[in-house]
């Protein structure tokens, strides 16, 4: 465990040193603030648009961090040849990958936390700046704690995407890893269509393959409850628990697959 923690901390420090997440987080802060300006363009609905934009910014920027750092986690060590030094230390390859993953998840968590604080600060300002009569007509308060349900599920989705990025990074080039990760992310959001494939095709074999792909590919659509929390539609606790449990199991499977590939990889 100590070895994993050390690698994780090193990843976190390095990503902070690279300033990439900070730049992205800075951009996120700007985007959340810009949401306030954009909302002035609309006839009403300022709060809805601020919430939509804030949650989307958290999601997109988190995705950038997960993909662009995740794909370089292993490749960078190989390029710099530091992998030899690392693996000569009392760190197994599995511990190395687990540490890399946890380090990036930590980076993601800190950045999402920072963006979340800014998001709530903008909402707090909006709450203060709005007359009580208008506030009373909002379907949910500005600083609605239920927004955190969406944030938690976004974090779950990003943890899964990070695992996928790390998996591809364990055996392919950064560019290919990026394309494959983004491809799976897109497929993950189209996944529900695969489930309904049998309704549009006559072929039982095609429907069976589609159903199989539905269960095999990461299903990312359930992680998206942004619209629900913005419109104050209740999100069942069971949905959140099941979706996060699904993420945990899928992440474990993908990390194990990454470890299996990485164990056999020859760095000569």
């Amino acid at each position: 465990m100590r070895a994993i923690a050390l690698v994780a901390l090193a990843v976190y420090r390095e990503s902070v040193r690279d300033r990439v997440p900070l730049t992205i987080a800075g951009f996120g802060v700007l985007l959340v603030c810009a949401s306030y300006l954009i909302s002035q363009l609309t006839a009403g609905q300022d709060l809805k648009i601020i919430k939509d934009l804030g949650l989307a910014a958290l999601n997109i920027l988190g995705l950038f961090i997960a993909v662009f750092i995740g794909i370089g986690l292993v490749a960078k060590e190989v390029d710099r040849r530091s992998i030899y030094t690392l693996l000569s230390k009392p760190v197994t390859r599995e511990q190395f990958l687990a540490g890399k993953y946890l380090g990036l998840v930590m980076t993601l968590g800190v950045n999402l936390g920072a963006m979340c604080l800014t998001f709530y600060a903008v909402l707090f300002y909006q709450d203060l700046a709005t007359p009580a009569g208008i506030r009373a007509t909002w379907p949910a308060p500005a600083m609605d704690p239920r927004l955190m349900i969406a944030v938690v599920l976004i974090f779950g989705e990003l943890m899964l995407v990070t695992a996928i990025a790390l998996f591809f990074s364990s055996f392919s080039s950064p560019l290919l890893s990026m394309l494959l990760t983004l491809g799976l992310w897109i497929a993950g959001h189209f996944n529900t269509d695969l489930r309904q494939f049998e309704q549009v095709v006559d072929s039982a074999a095609a429907a069976f393959i589609a159903r199989g792909a539905y269960y095999l590919l990461p299903n990312l659509a359930p992680f998206n409850v942004k619209a629900e929390v913005v419109h104050a539609v209740p999100v069942a606790a069971s949905h959140v628990v099941l979706t996060l449990s699904y993420a945990a199991v899928y992440i474990a499977a993908v990390l194990l697959a990454a470890m299996a590939v990485f164990r056999k990889r020859d760095f000569k």
């Binding site: 954009i38 363009l41 609309t42 006839a43 609905q45 809805k48 648009i49 939509d52 934009l53 989307a56 999601n59 997109i60 992310w185 897109i186 959001h189 990312l220 659509a221 992680f223 998206n224 942004k226 619209a227 913005v230």
Partner: peptide, 16 residues
């Protein structure tokens, strides 16, 4: 891709 609400906002601004 899960950003339906945000895209709806964009089209709403366009409509206004």
């Amino acid at each position: 891709l899960g950003f339906d609400s945000l895209i709806a906002d964009t089209y709403w601004i366009r409509a206004v």
